[in-house]
Write a protein that binds this DNA or RNA. Structure first.
Lengths: 131, 131, 131, 131
DNA sequence: GTGGTCTAGACCACG
DNA sequence: GTGGTCTAGACCACC
């Protein structure tokens, strides 16, 4: 699986890495039960510090995407991946609102915005089909 | 205009304040040419540091939402509010993508997501109508 | 508030520190809304590394005991302290069971065990009364 | 006797295995003098590393639950199972205290907590009766 | 000043 | 070998 980070961006590395791993799961490149690289291995591969990878893994563990198997190391949760909970909807709504407010203020129409969302969804599904 | 900040959220105050002012513009509570409170005044009113208000105003000036009027002080740009630029589309796309990836991974459908967006748009328009 | 850690024990420092802070909240030495020392300050006071304190604070944040107020720093959650959730009951049950199994196996009676628990409860309430 | 381990839990395997064997003794599935499977055999049966089983047996030997019989191999101590020593009381108290402190802090009453303990005791006795 | 992030290097428990 | 923990020291964003 390919990881692409922008170490110069103002988004923390661990947040970018988290997003990349979730994308891997979303597109089926990482399937439930699959083992991930060790923290040290992945850190070396992408040229960042071990602790940064560790932080990402820990957050994803807490989210329920990953868990530590005592024999296989870190694996994608084989039993139940996180679903859309009430809290998650609340959170995503809170994140979405200011974005939409500004888009609206700049004159973007509802249609344009939702089309953008749909395009991203379609892009994802294409990635999934390929994998 | 009512400003509501959450000092316990993990979103910087200046970002929240920026969003609130943009929302004021979006809903018509702040119209082009309207004057905003002075930095000191607003800081005192909402109980935050003067520098934070200043930072917000500066960013909004740079964005093109606000500008300095010789007599009235800081006002909502009376000539032309910011529109949907290419850079803006790029930025919003970059922000939107990881959100959608996670939503998709959690099993949220394209329809559910776009409906959520539409609801927020509608909510905004209602606010606009009332004001 | 007095913090007492055993740096030689095989219990991680951050776990001990977490327990001590919860004890502070339980006994009323730390009340909702109270500010805690900064990570650097507390680390220096008790002679451990900043990151260890930070880890403790982060876990307690996640648990809902603490939160970061952008003006006051880290504070005891002023709104709602964590309660007994279903998951918490499950977890405490899982922790308790092997302890009781061994106690039972060693011939400790139900009465002796519960008396021990009661003693600890009483001890806590005394501490609370004093504070 | 059934051994159930959770390789994804954050409790070391050898600790879980130790608890399971003690539970076997507590419920009478393993009686004083009974032989346990060989290290290799048990490791293979439950799919874990031989060293892990070995470690568990060694700890249980040191605790006094098991000992090595010349002919039968590792057996449940036929003479005297470990009792409630002063050190054991001290240790269990130290383990129990932080659990009770947090439970108390979350609003669990003394009665609720002790009832939980009693339930576990009763559950154990039921298991013992059946065996 | 605060917390947040990242790096570097070390030791240990576990399997 | 793995992850978990702790230390040390640094830079940055925020207020």
């Amino acid at each position: 699986m390919l990881i692409s980070l922008d170490l110069q961006a103002d988004i923390p590395i661990y947040v970018q890495l988290r997003a990349q791993i979730i994308e891997g799961i979303a597109t089926g490149q990482l399937k439930p039960g699959d083992a991930l690289p060790s923290v040290r291995q992945l850190a070396e591969d992408i040229g960042i510090n071990m602790h940064t990878v560790n932080k990402t893994y820990n957050i994803l563990k807490q989210d329920g995407f990953l868990l530590v198997h005592r024999q296989k190391g870190v694996v994608v949760n084989p039993d139940m991946l996180p679903r859309v909970t009430k809290e998650y909807v609340q959170q995503i709504h809170n994140d979405l609102r200011p974005m939409i407010v500004e888009a609206y203020c700049r004159g973007m129409t509802k249609k344009e915005f939702t089309q953008m969302c749909k395009d991203i969804f379609e892009d994802l599904k294409k990635g999934e089909a390929k994998s």
